[in-house]
Computed example of a mutant assay.
Amino acid sequence: MIRLPVALFAALALAACASVPAAPTYPEARSYAVSDNAMGDVHAALASAAMSGKRVLLVMGANWCHDSRALAGWLESPRIAELVEREYELVFVNIGMPQTGDGHNLAIARSFGLEELPGTPNLLVLTADGTLVNPDTATTWRNAASRSEAEIFAELERLAGAPV
């Protein structure tokens, strides 16, 4: 009689160990785009924006960062992707780990008036002439994984038409 409760307990314990962790509540991108010529990519996006009348959406992040991958994933979601396609020229730039002194491509941020990038990701919205539209919020995206699709959509929609 004691064997049945012990066996049941053991089965439940094993089932608990085998459970799969909950999936993130954001659509995480599998890989964050990395380029050998990041400044060239930014210049190409600015040139495209000048021809299309769009703004540049410059996402500065890294593959190691779950918030960077979350933001990249949200940008691929159908609702946000349609907005980005309509309003922005999108470019990703790898910045490494600036908070630990191992930063990459930080001169790009400085060229648009951001002296420091305290973490990842950063989201810069630029006019075709390189004017930074969102200097107050560009470096506030370190919680992208915690933001909802609606929040991100609303912010990108606002920035698409924000006065300079």
Rank of each mutant, 00 (worst) to 15 (best):
M60E: 12
M51P: 00
L58Q: 09
S111R: 14
W64L: 13
L57E: 01
G103L: 06
A49R: 03
L46C: 03
E76M: 14
R79H: 13
G96V: 09
E76D: 15
S35P: 03
E28P: 00
R55W: 06
E28R: 01
E82Y: 10
M51H: 10
Y88G: 02
G96P: 11
T25C: 04
F112N: 00
S77Q: 15
H43L: 03
F92Q: 13
G96S: 08
V42L: 05
R69V: 08
E82L: 15
S52I: 02
N94Q: 14
V42P: 03
F92I: 08
V42I: 03
E89M: 14
G101I: 09
Y88H: 05
I80R: 04
H66E: 11
V59M: 12
S68D: 14
F112G: 01
K54T: 05
E89V: 14
G101N: 05
P24G: 10
W74K: 10
P118M: 10
L71G: 13
P118T: 05
S52H: 11
S35V: 03
L123M: 14
D41I: 00
R86W: 03
H43I: 00
R86C: 02
A33Y: 07
E87R: 15
W64N: 10
G53M: 06
S48E: 05
L57Y: 02
V84C: 12
G96A: 07
N122A: 15
N94V: 01
I95L: 06
N63L: 05
A62M: 07
T25F: 09
E76V: 03
D67T: 12
G119D: 12
E116M: 07
H66C: 08
E28Y: 00
D102N: 13
Y26K: 00
A38I: 01
L123Q: 14
P24F: 05
M60C: 08
L123Y: 03
V34F: 02
N37H: 10
P27F: 10
L106H: 06
V59C: 03
E76H: 15
A62F: 07
